[in-house]
Design a protein around this nucleic acid. Structure first.
Lengths: 347, 347
DNA sequence: GGGAATGATGGAAGCGCTCCCACCCATTGA
DNA sequence: TCAATGGGTGGGAGCGCTTCCATCATTCCC
């Protein structure tokens, strides 16, 4: 048991290898490996000897060697096909990263951040993913043209989308908030409180979240027999909210309520309303979407549709890890989370 | 040349290997490898054949196998020892990530984001880095107690700090803005415009940037023979700026200027001043620090000390890559970037 | 008490790649 | 003419790890 066997390699090369651990522990490399990875089929005595050897040598397994044979990298990518400037200022992204990270730190999995400028880096990013540099990917903030869902489905890399992709939605898993229901509910709240001339500032044309929210507004409006012609589009930023609000108020001076597809755009709209001397909520009621902090910092505070971003990201990550573990046999899944209406001072 | 040699492995295992490329190209694995990695000592004919084979097979090298022998992972870590909530709302962090990413995307290097909650994850993170899972690390927003500089120096992992570390600064490389000079200059500007009762809202006690800025303010004040007793500390957040401003104005109602160690805190201070009916800049002049967007969005717009965060991050990353390439023989370096004073409406 | 489980063990075969080194074949200079 | 160069090439030895499989040592049950 204690007989010293000759090592395959000398301990010259810096950090200790499994061979040395095995030698010090007086067991074979195979046993040492088993002991280190969960200890199936290892006697208490061998386990102890290996643990001790690991401790005294300060052994850490070489991830590349391990990954070469297990075909696992123990890291997953968060893919953001968005010019970096926009990403970082967006609380949605921050929440996503937080949720992902929370789940990953429970297991020993690392997060590789893949920031791909729309056209330019797509090929490079795809190549990276094809390489199996990571075990899976969370994709967020994707646009219509990128066709990422299809590409990823072809590669066969386990992935989960945050938000329904435009195309290929039937081939990939995704987690989404029920955008239509949320915006419908928001609109119904306004209608219920006696508003009848309700406009909307919708999001960009190439994102499903925007389209779904707009649809929700339309549903509520037509169900109540109201005109759904007061529509402007922004790109979810504050500045675009201002522009859209101006256009909307110019075209429809009689508006008594605004359903806005993001809190940031709603903040812009609030500024325009103040600027034009319309009081909120007396003259015009405003509802936002997101509730990621901004809604509490506006004056007046914003009634809004809350999407639990962090929880959604957690959910997506767990889903991804399941798919990574299962590898095959798991067919695409969708998780739709109901949003909640948060009433504040703007309605 | 075209004779087909027997492959070491069958093409059953999914993606093609170098062996298959070599076989298809009619060369040896060694030649194929050379052709793929820059093509030293490869004839034009062989190069062409390999390129062609790579194309038709859709070959992508296995990163684990490569990394096992080269001892390079082609990825670097961005280490943020900060509870994740704070990180993401901070434009400083956003700028850093942007700068790092910009440099990395020039080469084919990936960014691994390591978010470590202060105490909890340190051991795990250090283990990850010890593993040589990455080639190097950028460390940002470190605090006094974490002693990260020492730990990393011990591991021997190439790393560059963003901002001077509290301890171990002589053993690691870092890129920093000249905080003292910046705050000194800001203070001198106020003194030059006739202010004499100047208070400061400093940053947290455990960050060098905060200490250096405070020192800069002190230098300017005592050089002008002014009292440097009006000091309050915040933690760089807007809320803490409000609290500090209140305390400062309570204790020193005669203040005619405020030097604030971050724009976010300055924004909080501005709100308090408005609330108390002090006009800015007529009654009280205010100078911030950072100029990362916030300063342009306050009313009035903020005069501030600009630190070029993105450029600093780029600089740090290039420095890191040099160190990674050189491996040894490169001794710790520091790069100190001069900040610039940006004058707006608050002074 | 004997054969079948059951559990622990080590030998050895790779995982896919890089790179050292020996080799071959043209050139070249003496 | 022959030795000396040198670019191009392939054989083969690893990199450090996991895991299949054969081998024993135990234990159990009829």
């Amino acid at each position: 048991m204690t007989r010293v066997t000759t090592p395959r390699t000398s301990p010259l090369s810096g950090s200790p290898t499994l061979d040395e651990v095995a030698r010090v522990a007086g067991v074979s490399r195979a046993t040492a490996s088993r002991a280190i990875n969960g200890g199936q089929r290892v006697s208490a005595r061998a386990q102890e000897a290996v643990d001790e050897a690991v401790r005294t040598l300060g052994y850490v397994p070489n991830p590349a060697a391990r990954s070469l044979v297990t075909r696992r990298t123990d890291s997953i990518a968060v893919l953001v096909p968005e010019p970096d400037d926009r990403v970082f200022s967006d609380p949605f992204f921050a929440g996503t990263l937080r949720g992902v990270n929370r789940v990953l730190s429970e297991r020993d999995i690392q997060l590789v951040l893949l920031l791909a400028r729309p056209g330019a880096d797509t090929a490079r990013t795809l190549r990276y993913l094809t390489n199996r540099h990571v075990d899976g990917a969370i994709v967020t903030s994707h646009h219509r043209e990128d066709r990422l869902a299809e590409h990823l489905a072809e590669i066969g890399l386990p992935c989960v989308f945050g938000g329904r992709p435009w195309t290929g939605g039937e081939r990939v898993a995704y987690v989404d908030v029920d955008n239509a229901a949320g915006e419908r509910e928001a609109t119904e709240l306004l209608i219920g409180s006696g508003r009848s001339r309700i406009g909307t500032i919708a999001g960009p044309h190439d994102m499903t979240a925007a389209a779904d929210r707009l649809a929700g507004w339309r549903q509520a409006m037509s169900a109540a027999g109201l005109a759904d012609d007061a529509v402007e589009h922004g790109d979810f930023t504050e500045a675009s909210g201002e522009t859209a609000a101006r256009a909307l108020l110019d075209r429809h001076p009689d508006l008594d309520a605004l359903v806005v597809a993001s809190d940031l755009m709603a903040a812009g709209a609030l500024r325009v309303l103040t600027e034009r001397g319309r009081s909120v909520p007396d003259d015009v009621a405003v509802v936002g979407f997101d509730d990621l902090g901004v809604a509490e910092r506006t004056t007046p505070q914003l009634t809004t549709v809350r999407q639990p971003v962090v929880e959604m990201a957690e959910r997506a990550t767990r889903l991804l890890l399941e798919r990574v573990d299962a590898m095959e046999g798991s067919h695409p899944m969708r998780v739709i989370i109901p949003p909640t209406l948060v009433q504040r001072a703007s309605t």
